[in-house]
Write a protein that binds this DNA or RNA. Structure first.
Lengths: 237, 237
DNA sequence: TAGAATTTGTTCGTATGTATG
DNA sequence: CCATACATACGAACAAATTCT
């Protein structure tokens, strides 16, 4: 070791500097492993270790057979009292979409019933959907609606591609988040498939209930965002 | 296959039901792999696959040589205009602490200088620290302070174990977050060591600048929380 | 302190079912 | 109908970490 710092660490810092300074811009393809090895005068594996670290940090993206790329700027997803996927994506001049994967009526378990303030075992409409930005899937969401009030809402979500619009048809003209819990987990194989990412990639999970104007719970939502493509933004309101 | 559902998936659901129903409570040790294999009448590997999925989801925690445990409820870390590690941990009746890993004066790169609204290359105090709750490390933070105003702040953080207290000694009696960006990444080996977790475990990263009463940037902070132990909570208002 | 027992982690090998073309 | 690829499931052996005697 030269400066008490591993060689791959030095290379990591050099590449990081190039990214921060703008030498490599978001979306740019990096030189190949072979070229970088030559530039730094090290073995290919040493470069790979540096790159691997930057991938974990979400700075680079590697596509087998294609090359290495600087990770594009993540979509800013605002978190606040009013969370509206379709509207916030539109505001960022991107194309929002929502695909329904599954919709069925099930019995609420303890977690769902507590959040919706209904009896455990009561019927709820479960809607599993994928949120898309510019045709790329970025979120996998499970939404639970009290069946008594919102039976058949799945069809409306399907039709309008928006949960806000669907709720509107049931007379819910406004709703707010009663508080959101944010955690980081790893993607399971199933969710990874839906989000078109590798299993084991990081996921931002948000969880919380939406309530209507009268304070009545409208839905309980668990959303999983692809950590590689989305960051949440909390504004100081 | 029996019900069109893989056996390990059925076991995953069975264990999940036991967790949700409270049969196994947070912190409880589960039966050993051998015992679960016997209970479900399957091979050890089949149980392991189910457990692996629940670990990824943050529901279980496995410790080699010890056993499998239901993941304790995560520490709720409030996100808002005022983020105060020491105070919010105390409010949860837990013991907060902060250990300084490194403190030195460096030159601000583009990201830091933009956030602190100072010239690129100007001197800043970098303080690397680990936040602890009940002696367990839960966050790794890099804080950048303008050196011109806060030279020597590291000693005060060391002494008071609190950034808020240290800022107080420089006449900063109040400060607020100018906006926080939240993302999910994977822990690098270095951060994993500091947080005493396995490399590759999920990390919640928050990033943002604190500003004083006059709107002047006081610090730029990048905090990495152990996703296994912390969840962020965004309250309404 | 030393070592046995317990528990999880990893890597073989084997067999079967399912989807694809 | 066959070949191939992949997921699932079982069994055995050994490694690594922890706990108990």
């Amino acid at each position: 070791m030269a400066d008490g710092l591993a060689i791959w660490k030095q290379i990591e810092q050099a590449l990081m500097a190039d990214i921060v300074s703008g030498t490599y811009r978001p979306g740019d393809q990096l030189p190949t492993e072979a070229q970088l090895s030559k530039r730094f005068g090290v073995n290919r594996h040493t470069v790979r270790r540096a790159v691997s670290s930057l991938v974990d940090q979400g700075r680079l993206r590697v596509e087998q057979g294609r090359g290495m790329f600087v990770q594009e700027n993540k979509l800013d997803y605002p978190m606040g009292a009013r969370v509206r996927f379709t509207q916030s994506v539109s505001a960022a001049h991107r194309l929002p979409g929502r695909a329904i994967l599954r919709a069925e009526i099930i019995q609420a378990d303890k977690i769902v019933s507590d959040n919706l303030k209904i009896a455990e075992g009561a019927e709820v409409v479960l809607v599993e959907s994928v949120g898309e930005v510019d045709r790329r899937p970025v979120s996998f969401a499970c939404s639970y609606f009290p069946a008594e009030r919102f039976r058949g809402i799945a069809g409306h979500v399907q039709e309008t591609q928006s949960i806000t619009e669907a709720l509107n048809r049931y007379g819910v003209t406004d709703y707010t988040r009663s508080g959101t819990r944010i955690s980081a987990i790893l993607s399971t194989a199933q969710v990874a498939r839906h989000l078109q990412i590798s299993p084991g990639r990081p996921i931002i999970q948000t969880e919380g209930a939406d309530i209507d104007q009268n304070g009545r719970p409208v839905s309980y939502n668990v959303s999983q965002f692809a950590g590689d493509w989305v960051q949440l933004v909390v504004s100081p309101d």
